[in-house]
Design a protein around this nucleic acid. Structure first.
Lengths: 114, 114
DNA sequence: TCCTTTCATCGAAGATTGTCGATGAGAGGA
DNA sequence: TCCTCTCATCGACAATCTTCGATGAAAGGA
């Protein structure tokens, strides 16, 4: 019997049957972190490989510095970005594998066989 | 020169350089539609292939019927699900390719060459 | 025709979110 | 030591979101 299943939980392999309430909440939390155009822009920018300090992002996205810090905190809490302090600067980068993990959530139906 | 770029816009191919403000807003809108555990659950359920009427989903997710209708409207507006009326029932299913389109948004850095 | 069933919409209440200015903490130069 | 620079946190306000009960619309059976 082939069970088609498209939205996969973040944590486990492709053979976890339903999508528990807990997994749905966890997935929704990640999507919530990406549910803002400024945050999408930040992730996209960091995803191009470069590290950015907060002042770079503040300049790039036309919002105030506290707002950028706020967005970075949300992305950090969601496990999407991480920071490294050098002197007075804080350099942000994507968490390695964060994107790959997200891509694996969307498994095309014809490939998600059980 | 290889330009690494991970978050792709929804609309176009993989060779669209930055992520315009407009594309970021469009992406964020889709993520916003998935930023709720009930909606994640609905999409996951529909993604397993079966069609569901509203009363099925109301029974499955422990929220009221107007709330389910509200969530379905948000998913519909985001282009993720579509409805077909048969008699007094409304059957919902995933929009074909909606998941594949989403998966293509997350392009692992080492594959996104320009 | 009248009643029932299914679903969408309306209006309201409470919670969450995005944004800012003000402020604080920490590093480093003069 | 004092000043400057970078960044995080706080407090507040407006906007948005989630949820519900009440109601309306459409289909169909008795």
């Amino acid at each position: 019997m082939k069970e088609l299943r498209v939205l996969q939980p973040l944590c486990c392999g492709p053979d976890v049957p339903p999508l528990h309430e807990e997994a749905a909440e966890e997935l929704a939390a990640v999507f919530r972190a990406l549910a803002d155009p400024t945050r999408v822009g930040i992730v996209s920018r960091l995803a191009s490989g470069e590290q950015c300090c907060v002042c770079d992002l503040t300049e790039a996205f036309d919002v105030s510095q506290p707002t950028v810090s706020h967005h970075l905190r949300i992305l950090r809490d969601a496990g999407l970005v991480e920071a490294e302090r050098r002197g007075t600067f804080a350099y942000y980068r994507l968490v390695p594998d964060a994107i790959e993990r997200l891509q694996r959530v969307f498994v095309p139906a014809e490939l998600a066989t059980a």
